[in-house]
Design a protein around this nucleic acid. Sequence first.
DNA 1: AGCCAGGCTAAGA
DNA 2: TCTTAGCATGGC
Length: 294
Amino acid sequence: MSQAPTFSLGKNPELNLDATLTSGQTFRWHKDAAGRWTGILGTQVVRVSCVGDEFFAQTFPLSRDLTLLRHYFQLHVSLSNIVQTFPDDPLLRKAQRKYFGLRLLRQDPWETLASFILSSSKRIEHIRQIVAAICEKLGEPIQALDDSIPQRLFFSFPSPVAIATSTPKHLRACKAGFRAEYLWKTAHAIVSGRFDFTRLFRLSYADAHRALTTLPGVGDKIADCVLLFAYGRQEAFPMDVWIERALRRFYFRGKRSVSRQELNQFRRTHFGPWAGYAQQYLFHYVRSHPKVVK
DNA sequence: AGCCAGGCTAAGA
DNA sequence: TCTTAGCATGGC
């Protein structure tokens, strides 16, 4: 058998694969002993790595068109320009210094929506387990016929139809718990045409956010995750327990009496035009250094 | 053993 | 309009 060729996507010093792929925006990438990352984009298995400043990729089956990867990693986006717009405070300075190269991905809307419905009140490691189980049970098998891939069988992310024609009971067998009914009902809303997530691209942030929260299992936080990680809406600032702790501790001196509404007002105004990016740096930093907020 | 996790929903104040 | 119990599950 053969080995797939490796393509260069050029030099990019603004790409930190480890930070990007472990920062809780995506749940299906795996790192091998050589430091390469393997993931699934649609029905294609891809393997990426950085050597020095150079970004390399292999695709299975072979594809010479790397447009998909460039789009997924948003390689045209200048991180240094973005980081410049962040407010200047000690926490953000530390986060961006330590994890510079952390990029927001542009992921598939349905996979992002479904994954984050499954994410609620779960640790990232466990979200990965649930998503993996759902893909194995309901996704389509993908063969990566290449000698250099140890695990040759992968699975696509199950379509809305696949989820909808499954059952909540089946989804619970994937350890989805109480999120099973949410995912199943949301899949039905999409299959039936009651909800069209391609339409969201043309809506304002506020309207898209409102539309998403009509879905079962999707509230303010998950809507923001979907808008940020799949639709590229930089205003979205997902506030989970970690971000909330960080805001209270570092921007309100740990004052307990700060209301939720004050925090909302703050996150919408303080972080500038790339607030979503700032949020991702904060999140990854405090989650990697839990003691600074606990 | 008890607590917590990239929350949401519905009931009650 | 705002708070809060309840909801599965696994890891520490």
